Computed example of a mutant assay.
Amino acid sequence: MASSLQLQFRLSPSTTPALLRHRPIQCATDRRALFDRIAPVYDNLNDLLSLGQHRIWKRMAVSWSGAKAGDCVLDICCGSGDLAFLLSQKVGSNGKVTGLDFSRQQLSIASSRQTSLSRPCYKNIEWVEGDALNLPFSDGSVDAITMGYGLRNVLDKRKALEEMLRVLKEGSKLSILDFSKATQPTTASIQEWMINNIVVPVASGYGLAEDYKYLSKSISEFSTGKELEKLALEVGFSTSIHYEISGGLMGNLVASR
């Protein structure tokens, strides 16, 4: 099953990744540089800023993906690997997990974590430097897809969803976790207050205040849950539902091919 994934790049667990075949990545250069820059403290910041709640949300996202033992699954915008590690536990040693990201620094940290955590099931994970808008995998080759906090950062959300639809097998699901664009004024105010008074000040302690100021803008420009549901159906998914999490501050889109 795993052989159907045409990987363009494999990350060595202990070294800077070596590119086997290059395919240009469509992304804003400054956004890619941002994720490379924050990579060393990304996990610590996630724990601090969410009070550890992001780990619960990620488990929910993996559960909604429908991944099961023996599956071949894909985590897009995998970052330092949280969702990929959870997926690995789901699919087991007979399954296959591919974590894809455009940030080489994030992939390097994910690979280092894979080595240091040293769980037997984590041997089923491959790390790929690649483009969410041009997935280097064959049609209908993936049993489930997850994406955590990545859809806001792609240049073309429709194209990203079309690519996910293309590589998913018939009847399989994608599960996309992200900040939710609040439609209620109260929730929007709370979200903005948290970013300005908690997220940015905490990030400033790591010298990353300017890097994290992009959050508010990226959320305000993001689609609402209903808009994401509609977009998924427009590109060809058979079902689509957006779940609100933590009072609407977070959301998870689940769509079936």
Rank of each mutant, 00 (worst) to 15 (best):
M1I: 01
S3C: 11
S3P: 01
L5W: 03
Q6H: 13
F9M: 05
R10Y: 12
L11Y: 14
S14R: 15
S14Y: 15
S14I: 13
T16K: 15
P17D: 07
P17M: 08
L20N: 12
R23T: 13
R23P: 00
R23V: 13
I25S: 09
Q26C: 15
A28F: 06
R31E: 15
A33W: 02
L34A: 09
F35S: 13
D36T: 09
P40K: 03
V41K: 01
Y42W: 06
Y42Q: 08
D47N: 14
D47T: 13
D47S: 13
L48C: 08
S50R: 01
L51Q: 06
I56Q: 00
A61V: 05
A61G: 07
S65C: 09
A67G: 11
A69D: 12
G70E: 08
G70A: 06
D71H: 11
V73I: 04
I76W: 04
S80T: 15
G81I: 02
G81F: 10
L83G: 03
A84F: 09
L86W: 07
L86R: 10
L87C: 03
L87P: 02
S88L: 02
S88W: 06
S88G: 14
Q89G: 06
K90D: 08
V91S: 06
G95A: 00
G95M: 00
K96R: 15
K96V: 08
K96A: 11
T98E: 09
G99H: 08
L100E: 09
F102M: 15
S103Q: 03
S103R: 01
R104D: 13
L107Q: 11
S112P: 09
T115D: 14
L117A: 14
L117M: 14
L117V: 13
L117G: 05
S118H: 07
S118Y: 03
K123W: 05
N124K: 05
W127M: 00
A132M: 11
L133C: 10
L135V: 10
S138V: 04
S141M: 06
V142M: 04
V142C: 06
D143A: 10
T146H: 03
L151T: 05
R152K: 10
V154H: 00
A160V: 09
A160I: 12
L161N: 02
L161I: 06
E162V: 02
M164V: 09
V167E: 11
K169Y: 05
K173C: 14
S175A: 15
L177K: 01
L177C: 01
D178E: 14
F179N: 07
P185Q: 01
P185H: 04
A188S: 05
Q191A: 00
W193L: 06
M194I: 10
N196A: 12
N196C: 09
N197C: 05
P201S: 07
P201F: 06
S204Y: 02
S204Q: 14
G205I: 10
E210H: 13
E210D: 15
Y212G: 08
Y212H: 07
Y214D: 15
Y214F: 11
L215E: 10
K217E: 14
E221H: 12
S223P: 10
S223T: 05
T224W: 02
T224H: 06
L228F: 15
E229R: 12
E229H: 09
E234K: 13
V235Q: 06
H242E: 07
E244W: 03
S246G: 07
S246N: 08
M250S: 08
G251E: 04
N252K: 08
N252P: 07
N252E: 05
L253T: 00
L253I: 00
A255I: 08
A255R: 08
R257N: 12
R257A: 10
